[in-house]
């Protein structure tokens, strides 16, 4: 796209430089208009974050008196201390972390194994599994929470981390990411390993897996975000106060009658900070992961 604009400008007679040209290049004008528009909207998009952080640093009294003047009443970290002391945010973090980490491990292992088998091996039922996974892409499994709850209750899995890890560990999307990647591995490489006497398991573990790190990273990051942000199912499954995840725990603060604005915003900031930090570090991989899978 950078090429587009250079091409456009060079194919036309140079029409004055930036600033005071009499005839302004319409393409350039257009692009500048785009940039202004986009920047404006991007800034609007950041407002809720800024607003939450600013509110969290103020005192409730100052907020009610001067809601929009951010500097009235001074800033302090008091609300964070209050939020941390009054809600078991530490426990919630830990639960979210353990659940997301387990989900990532299980998803990467189960889905890569299945994808490896689907791509490189001929076996009975292969077509059926492929069909199952394809169908699974379109099935709204979130809608099935009620029968899911009844099943998990009879299996005595409710109230455990497994109730959250297992259903997320078999996301068809993840199989597809690995599937697409394994198809890119040259077959002779696999055959060479086989001729060297490696078992299929060894081929999977020592040849295929090390080559598909990018795919594993994509799956890992996306699984982590999905599982960290899940709401309805953890809301139903984890009920003990300290056993909840961050999203479910914080949802108990959602109430129109809650007037402790600073404390609530401090909790929100604590709620979004870890993931936004993860996003900022891995933003390139996350965005490209989404783009390649195309499915949440």
């Amino acid at each position: 796209m950078s090429t587009v604009s250079t091409v456009t400008t060079t194919t036309r007679p140079p029409s004055g430089t930036d600033g005071g040209g009499r005839t302004v290049d319409p393409a350039k004008m257009f692009n500048r208009l785009c940039a202004t528009c986009m920047t404006l909207f991007a800034l609007i998009w950041l407002v809720p974050f800024v607003w939450a952080i600013a509110t969290s640093l103020r005192s409730d009294g100052a907020i009610t008196e001067h809601p929009t003047s951010l500097f009235a009443g001074g800033w302090s970290l008091h609300a964070y201390r209050y939020a941390w002391d009054n809600y078991p945010i530490g426990s919630w973090y830990l639960n979210s972390l353990v659940i997301s980490a387990l989900s990532v491990v299980f998803t990467v292992v189960l889905c890569s194994m299945a994808a490896f088998a689907l791509v490189f091996l001929r076996f009975r039922g292969r077509a059926a599994i492929l069909a199952l996974v394809t169908a699974g892409l379109m099935l709204p499994s979130e809608a099935l929470v009620l029968p899911q709850f009844i099943e998990y209750r009879s299996l005595h899995l409710l109230g455990t981390y497994w109730a959250l890890v297992l259903p997320y560990a078999v996301a068809p999307v993840s199989v597809f990411v690995f599937h697409a990647f394994f198809r890119g591995i040259p077959m002779p490489l696999i055959e060479a390993a086989r001729i060297d006497g490696a078992s299929w398991w060894r081929v999977y573990a020592t040849v295929a897996m090390p080559m598909c790190r990018p795919a594993a990273a994509t799956v890992a990051i996306l699984t982590f975000i999905t599982s960290w942000n899940a709401f309805l199912w953890p809301l139903l499954v984890l009920n003990q106060t300290k056993a909840q995840t961050i999203p479910v725990g914080l949802s108990s603060l959602v109430s129109p009658s809650n007037i402790q604005y600073a404390e609530v915003m401090a909790s929100s900031v604590l709620g979004f900070l870890p993931l936004v930090a993860v996003f900022l570090v891995f933003q390139r991989q996350i965005v490209q992961g989404i783009a390649t899978t195309g499915i949440r």
Partner: peptide, 15 residues
């Protein structure tokens, strides 16, 4: 544009 997408729904609701 993408940062909000990684924020949990309950936090979005709080804000």
């Amino acid at each position: 544009f993408f940062a909000p997408y990684v924020v949990p729904s309950s936090v979005v609701a709080l804000i």
